[in-house]
Amino acid sequence: MDTFDVSDRNSWYFGPMSRQDATEVLMNERDRGVFLVRDSNSIAGDYVLCVREDTKVSNYIINKIQQQDQVLYRIGDQLFENLQKLLTFYTLHYLDTTPLRRPAPKKAEKVIGRYDFEGSDQDDLPFRRGEILTVIRKDEDQWWTVRNQQGQIGQIPVPYVQICEENTDDNCIDRPLSSGGNCGTTLASSNSFRSPLLSSVACKNDTTIHSTSTNCHQLNNSLKRSDLNRKLPAFARVKQARVPNAYDKTALKLEIGNVIKVTKTNINGQWEGELNGKKGHFPFTHVEFIDDCDPIHNTEDVTLKVVSVSSLNNDWVE
Rank of each mutant, 00 (worst) to 15 (best):
N82V: 01
E81W: 05
R237M: 14
D291M: 01
V37Q: 15
E140K: 12
T97W: 04
N221W: 04
N314I: 05
F127C: 08
P126V: 04
I296P: 01
L223Q: 00
L79F: 14
F4E: 05
L198K: 12
D206K: 08
S58H: 13
V71G: 02
T186A: 03
V309E: 05
Q155I: 08
N258V: 00
V307K: 05
S311K: 15
D123E: 07
G45L: 15
N182S: 14
A246C: 08
E300S: 14
Q122K: 12
R9S: 01
T185W: 04
D227E: 05
L254S: 04
I156Y: 11
M17W: 09
K231I: 05
N167V: 08
E109L: 12
C183V: 06
R147V: 07
V48K: 03
F193A: 02
Q20F: 12
D39A: 15
T265I: 02
A236L: 03
N266T: 04
V262C: 11
K261P: 02
Q218H: 15
N41V: 03
V317Y: 03
K110H: 04
N171P: 10
N245Q: 12
M17Y: 12
R52A: 01
S190Y: 04
I267T: 07
L133A: 09
L83C: 07
G269P: 12
V34M: 13
L254M: 08
Y13F: 03
V302E: 08
T186Q: 09
D170A: 10
Y160I: 10
V135L: 08
R225P: 03
D54Q: 14
P159I: 01
V201T: 13
T207E: 00
V51T: 05
V48F: 04
S200M: 08
Q66S: 01
D248T: 00
E274Q: 04
R19E: 15
R194K: 10
G33P: 02
Q152A: 06
D8L: 07
N28D: 08
Y90V: 02
W144N: 03
G130P: 11
N268F: 13
D141W: 05
E300F: 12
Q66F: 07
T212A: 03
D248W: 10
P233C: 13
A234W: 02
P159L: 01
Y13N: 02
V37I: 15
K224T: 13
T97Y: 07
E81P: 04
L232Y: 01
I136D: 01
L26W: 11
S211G: 08
R102K: 15
E109M: 07
T3F: 13
L177E: 11
E300W: 09
N41M: 12
S189H: 10
V37M: 15
K239W: 01
D69G: 11
Y90G: 00
P99M: 03
R19L: 15
F284E: 13
S226Q: 11
T3P: 09
L83R: 11
C50F: 06
C183G: 07
H93D: 06
K204L: 15
K278D: 09
Q218E: 14
L198D: 00
N63P: 00
D5Y: 07
